[in-house]
Amino acid sequence: MSEEDGRPAHQQAGEWVPPPQYFAPAPRVSARVPMAVVTDPVAHRAYSPGRLRTVLVGGAVVSVLAAVGMAVTSGEEERPGPLFVALPSVPAVTVPPSGTPATEGPTGRSVPLPTSKVRETLPGPGGTAGTGTAGPGRPAPSASATPVVVLPVIGAVIGLEPVGEPGRRLRHRNFVARIDQLGADSPEGDRADSRFTVRAGRGDATCLSFEAANYPGYFLRARGFELRLERPSGWGGDQGFDAEATFCAVPAATGGFVLRSRSDQRRYVTERNSVLSLNEVVAAKAKAFVTRPPL
């Protein structure tokens, strides 16, 4: 452009010149930005890798806990509720007061109150026999209860009756021990042969010896395993006689007691053809006796 007319240097004279164009300047827009947003460095700070990992782990833990809670809730909803069974009602029973002797039955007559039968028992640890009765704190006795066992008492005059064989008695006849049928109407001599005085064991004071009541000084003894009525020699004591004339009373399971030899504790008194002897058997196979008043 020449300085004279303001045209460009390359423009020739007489050429077409476009008219000058004027463009309005763009307006300047200014906005007020709150200082808290611009100056807050936390809003524009990028998360560090450690903090991003913590955020991801926390989100995973929350997701797992939510899933477990949903599973537990669904399991509780499926659990069946308790089952209740209705029990039959028990009719009320009126218990009469203690000491009431009788009650009235359907016909108006006096009916005695039911009572429990007394059950006999084996002797306790102290050696004395006892009885058991049914009561509020005890069960009713059974029909198969073992009967009482009364052992011979030292110094008493007794009769010996086989268990389950009433009317038969142990006796001596011709100095041989046997079992015969005897009763109150039997001859006096036979009845006297069935009476024995119980003595402390000659060979063992914890056992027994049986002295004939009608032959004082004569005892039942096992000679050659046969029970006989004999007396000791009296010459400075007779240890063999004392041992063979001593018997230990052992309570039997069927009631009563059996007699075991003190000299040979494997042998018990048994019966064969009404005659008594010592044999090597178990206690259940031995002859059991009960004490009876003398005839």
Rank of each mutant, 00 (worst) to 15 (best):
A200M: 03
E244P: 00
R178G: 03
P20K: 10
G14N: 12
G255H: 13
S116V: 10
T100C: 07
V95R: 12
S261R: 01
L87I: 03
R7E: 08
T133C: 02
P125I: 08
R28I: 10
A222I: 01
D238I: 05
P34R: 08
R53F: 03
P139A: 11
E4C: 04
A283Y: 01
F219D: 02
G59D: 12
L83E: 09
V148A: 15
G130L: 09
T128P: 00
F247C: 02
K117N: 08
R32S: 12
M1T: 11
A249P: 09
E4H: 09
A24Y: 05
D40R: 03
P101H: 05
A60D: 13
A71E: 11
F241S: 05
M1K: 05
V90M: 04
D193K: 09
T103V: 15
A66P: 02
D5C: 14
K117H: 08
A143E: 13
F241A: 06
G105E: 10
P91M: 02
P101R: 13
V176G: 02
P18N: 10
P97K: 07
E78V: 11
L208K: 01
A24V: 09
S30C: 04
A192P: 01
V176N: 04
T133R: 13
P141E: 04
L227I: 15
R173S: 12
G105N: 15
V281C: 07
V258F: 02
V85D: 05
M1Q: 10
T39W: 01
G75N: 13
P97S: 11
R45H: 10
P232A: 11
E226T: 09
A92K: 03
V258R: 10
D238K: 05
G224A: 10
L122F: 05
G75R: 12
A288H: 06
G99D: 03
S74I: 03
R169C: 07
G99H: 07
R267L: 07
A143N: 05
D204M: 01
E15F: 06
T39M: 11
V150I: 11
S274N: 15
P25A: 14
R168S: 11
P80C: 00
T103Y: 00
G137E: 05
R51C: 01
V29D: 06
P114E: 10
D204R: 06
A67D: 11
G135Q: 06
A184S: 14
T94K: 07
Y215Q: 10
V55F: 09
E120C: 07
V93I: 14
S209D: 07
L113I: 15
L170W: 07
T54V: 14
V118P: 03
V68A: 15
V269C: 04
L122H: 02
A213Y: 04
E226H: 05
A134Q: 09
Q21E: 14
V150M: 02
V38Q: 10
A145Y: 08
G224C: 00
P187F: 07
L122S: 12
V42E: 12
L229F: 06
G183L: 08
Y268D: 08
K285S: 15
A43V: 14
T254I: 10
L227D: 01
S89E: 14
A92M: 06
G50W: 00
R292W: 00
F257I: 02
I179A: 05
L295D: 11
A67G: 15
T107N: 15
E15D: 13
S48A: 11
T254D: 10
Q21V: 15
A245Q: 01
A177F: 01
E3M: 04
